[in-house]
Design a protein around this nucleic acid. Structure first.
Length: 923
RNA sequence: GGUCUGUUGGCUCAGUUGGCAGAGCACAUCGUUCACAUCGAUGGGGUCACUGGUUCAAGUCCAGUACAGACCACCA
């Protein structure tokens, strides 16, 4: 085994082995509840960014865990056609060649787009593999593949038939750059500095001044609105004014939407270019006059300004108003401007013929599903975000004036104007029988197909066995920024089409930010390329650094420090394994014996602790029971843990701690708290297994006692085995690599059974180890403080009571190994303390280091006094608590007992310290 | 304007049903003996933003204040 951890050398071959073994595909077992995740399909235009890495790490972690606990597990991958994003990208490429959509035509364009998809669309999927994603690639889907497309068509038609999809001329968000309609969710708002122009509209014998941020839209004004209770204007309601420049008479109406306090209290109405004005216009039957073209220029209804770009028209209009003395004033003003979420150009609200989904009937059950708990958000607070959006939702504009996407299955009849909506291309008009049909040019919002993803990918509308078995899926993992775009729409679509919600849990994570907390983006140049990170630190390090310390739903930062910490942990694990393995297989005697103990035939030998008992038997029989692979192991009877009883304290201790770690980690993963689960494992592996178990195993491993050696190996291998299993969901590559090097590896770790607590635990071993660790630490500290040469061994006297002296005598090797002790002398009588010496007190024993000339009496005194103060403080605090009647009456008994115990031990410590102080002073 | 989140050692963050404040990084001192210098040992460092309340007990629960951030929203 190489000395240093170099992930570059094995990650890709491990992945290949997984993939070739078919381990990613679920083993379907009827009657067993599957665990299913559908991937949030990345855009085919996309390059993998750290957000995907986060998403993938979490999903893969859950997937691997569930696979290991025995659930039939499916993680279904795929990609999204990303209508606008892809079309823009392709148009850019075409522009470079001097081509346009018009010159290429629809067919030519689509051909090009598919070529592009086939060429580049797989890139991101390959990158997911680099991360270790254990997706079932045999079920990979694409939102525009045949099945998904027929799902889209089916949903469109059935919603249309139910009256939940309709076509109408209404005000929508229009991006003049992308030249398409957008849904409300696709508009982002940004504060921009602008001006507020106050314009006077003359009436008969009166004037009304209105304020606007978009003077050019006045050309389309069709009214003035005032508040019904505004006395300033009450007399004018019902009358009219003359629209400047256009010289059109427009009525004054009263509507409570108007704020009396804002501006002049009168609002110009431009229903064709403002959503609010549009609604008011509906209420008052105002005319709707559109003055802008789709490309953002003024149209023929704009009179002399026709053909001009809006910004230029604005300038000219303002100038003209000023000339006519109608411009009252201009003041600086900051307001929210809507921007296209793809190209960030200003969105123009305008009226247009579009297709809409009627939201209210769909939203209702979708809200109920979350309210009733059928769907749970983790963390829970995101459900309120969801409710707020769903409860205020407006109809969803789903048509897009693009070519790349699912074409709307509607055909207009030239003869009678009827709209034929159909699953298949109609031959003739269903109403008049005419044959001159023209299909709607538009495609659907990308998110329309994404909304069907949890069932379209499983085969719907066909009744496939996958659909029956895997729907509803289990957990949906995504970041909070697409709850509206995607999660909400999947929920109502799943309920509407399938009759039940598409998943029971929505696990929300945050955004990945850079080391300074800034959002990563290409334009800011602070994006971290996950592939580069993988090449430098390894995929495992990337995954672990993203998950460790992560709290559900909150943003996280990625930095080189974190990556290094994760990489270092992997290196630590690597070397720990290297040590264990190099000592597991060095001779005739055994590793196989102890290892090869247990479980089911054919399964990877799971080294149950009963192994130790077997090892004992083996020894007495004197034969090696190493089993041929697949042969039947003898039944194991764990009822007689004599071998366990014979283990050293630290061995019992680590096994007991391991049990607790297994329980904690399993529970945390079930609760989706992967960050804490990873941290728990990190701590266990480094601070307990490596720092203590491995160090303490050395005397036995390098010693002469064959049974002790055998035991040490068995315990280390057993714990390592469990560690690898528990770490596998987090860092799959290195754990798989090491697992493959364990003696008798029969199968890959990816297929192994999750770690289970052993029946053996010994809480008294924990207490004993706590005492031992405290002594070791105190001795180390004393030696450093007294500047004892690092390599120099000194005698160690331990003055202990009956209970501890036995434990400590058993552990002399521990102190020799870790506390620089040449000899360990456990004494029971103060008279046996040598002088002069450096002394300290722990709860388990008094420590005496006969350091001769190194003893500094002043320093001794100071340290002992400090310890006395601290012991006194502890006692006092505990006494105060026990003196409190409320505490005695209401606190749990165990807590009260703890306080009593504390007083007891601390009193002992205090007495010993005072004794030591007296001894120092008398010298 | 509404909703939500955060404020804990120099930095980045944990802290799971209230029960004596933790980690990683950084810092200081020591250390090349056979897993690991991508390492080991030891140590310094926090009135848990502020104010009040509930409780025997509050970083943890409640109310308010300040600051920071996110999302939503139709004041032209």
């Amino acid at each position: 085994m190489e000395k240093n951890y170099s992930p570059q050398e094995f990650e890709s071959e491990i992945y290949q082995a997984w993939e070739e073994s078919g381990s990613f595909a679920p083993k379907i077992e009827e009657g067993k509840k599957p665990f299913t995740i559908v991937i949030p399909p990345p855009n085919i235009t996309g390059q993998l960014h750290v957000g995907h890495a986060m998403d993938t790490s979490i999903q893969d972690c859950l997937t691997r865990y569930h696979r290991m606990i025995g659930d039939p597990t499916l993680w279904l991958p795929g990609t999204d056609h990303a209508s606008i994003a892809t079309e823009v990208k392709i148009l850019d490429a075409m522009r470079a060649e001097g081509l346009t959509k018009e010159t290429l035509g629809r067919e030519g364009f689509l051909e090009r787009a598919w070529d592009w998809k086939n060429q580049y669309g797989g890139a991101i999927v390959r990158q997911l593999r680099r991360l270790g994603g254990s997706c079932d690639w045999s079920r990979e889907r694409f939102t525009m593949d045949e099945g998904c497309s027929s799902a889209v068509r089916e949903v469109f038609v059935s919603l249309y038939e139910k009256g939940l999809i309709y076509r109408a001329n209404r005000i929508i968000n229009w991006c003049p750059e992308c030249k398409t309609a957008l849904s409300d969710a696709e508009v982002e708002y940004e504060e921009q500095a602008s001006s507020l122009w106050h314009i006077r509209y003359p009436g008969d014998g009166f004037d009304i001044t209105v304020a606007t941020t978009r003077p050019e839209t006045m050309l389309g004004d069709t009214g003035i609105a005032v508040h019904p209770e505004d006395s300033r204007y009450a007399a004018y309601v019902g009358k009219s004014v003359t629209l400047p420049i256009m010289n059109r008479r427009i009525p004054i109406v009263a509507d409570s939407y108007v704020e009396k306090e804002f501006g002049s209290g009168a609002v110009k109405m431009t229903p064709a270019h403002d959503p609010n004005d549009y609604e008011i216009a509906q209420r008052h039957n105002l005319a709707i006059i559109r003055v802008m073209n789709d490309d953002g220029t003024m149209n023929e209804r704009a009179g002399e300004f026709a053909g001009l770009p809006a910004p230029l028209a604005r300038k000219l209009i303002v100038a003209k108003l000023e000339e006519q003395g109608l411009l009252v004033k201009v003041e600086p003003y900051t307001h929210n401007v809507g921007l296209c979420y793809r190209c960030h150009h200003t969105v123009e609200p305008l009226t247009s013929d579009q297709w809409f989904v009627k939201m209210e009937p769909l939203a209702k059950p979708a809200i109920e599903a979350v309210r009733s708990g059928s769907i749970e958000f983790v963390p829970e607070r995101y459900s309120s975000t969801y409710f707020h959006w769903m409860e205020n939702i407006r109809d969803w504009c789903i048509s897009r004036q693009l070519w790349w996407g699912h074409r709307i299955p509607a055909w207009f009849c030239r003869d009678c104007g009827h709209i034929n909506v159909s699953r298949t291309t109609p031959e003739s008009c269903e109403k008049c029988g005419g044959v001159h049909l023209r299909q709607d040019e538009d495609v659907m919002d990308t998110w329309f197909s994404s909304a069907l993803w949890p069932f379209s990918t499983l085969g719907w509308p066909e009744k496939t066995s996958d659909l029956a078995y895997f729907y509803p899926t289990s957990v949906l993992v995504t970041s909070y920024d697409i709850i509206f775009f995607w999660v909400a729409r999947m929920i109502f679509s799943g309920i509407e089409q399938m009759g039940e919600p598409p998943f029971h849990t929505v696990l929300i994570h945050g955004l990945v930010r850079d080391a300074n907390g800034k959002k990563m983006s290409k334009s800011a140049g602070n994006g971290i390329d996950p592939i580069e990170v993988i090449e430098t630190y390894g995929a495992d390090a990337l995954r672990l650094s993203l998950i460790m310390g992560l709290s559900p739903g909150t943003d996280t930062r990625l930095s080189t420090e974190k990556l290094e910490a994760a990489r270092n942990f992997a290196n630590k694990l690597w070397n720990a394994a290297r040590f264990v393995l190099s000592n597991a297989d060095d001779g005739v005697d055994t590793a196989g014996d102890v290892l090869n103990t247990a479980g089911e035939p054919g399964a990877r030998p799971y080294m149950g602790l009963s192994a130790l008992d077997r090892a004992e038997n083996v020894k007495s029989v004197g034969a090696s029971p190493r089993l041929a692979r697949g042969s039947q192991p003898s039944p194991v009877t764990p009822q007689t843990p004599t071998a366990f009883q014979a283990l050293q304290i630290h061995e019992k201790w680590i096994l007991t701690r391991l049990n607790r770690t297994i329980e904690d980690v399993s529970r945390l993963i079930e609760q989706y708290d992967l960050g804490l689960a990873a941290t728990t494992l990190y701590e266990f592996v480094w601070n307990q297994f490596c720092d203590w178990s491995i160090e303490l195993a050395k005397p036995a491993l390098f010693g002469d006692d064959a049974q002790a050696k055998r035991n040490a190996r068995a315990v280390l291998l057993y714990v390592l085995d469990a560690i690898l299993k528990m770490l596998h969901p987090f860092i799959p590559f290195i754990t798989e690599k090491i697992y493959g090097m364990l003696p008798d590896s029969a199968d890959m770790l990816i297929n192994a059974e999750w770690a289970k607590p052993s029946p053996y635990a010994d809480n008294s071993a924990e207490e004993a180890m706590d005492g031992i660790i405290e002594i070791v630490r105190t001795v180390r500290s004393l030696r450093l403080e007294r500047k004892v040469q690092a390599g120099k061994k000194t005698r160690l006297y331990l003055l202990a009571n009956e209970k501890w002296s036995g434990i400590l005598a058993e552990s002399t090797q521990v102190f020799q190994r870790l506390a620089g002790a040449s000899d360990v002398i456990v004494i029971k009588d103060r008279a046996d303390i040598p002088e002069p010496s450096v002394k300290a007190v722990t709860s388990a024993a008094e420590i005496i280091l006969p350091l001769g000339e190194l003893v500094d009496f002043a320093a001794e005194k100071a340290r002992i006094n400090k310890a006395i103060d601290s012991a006194k403080g502890e006692i006092e605090r505990a006494q105060r608590k026990l003196a409190n009647d409320g505490f005695i009456a209401k606190a749990p008994a165990s807590l009260i007992e703890d306080e009593r115990k504390k007083i007891e031990t601390q009193t002992g410590v205090l007495q010993a310290l005072e004794q030591q102080l007296g001894e120092v002073e008398s010298m």
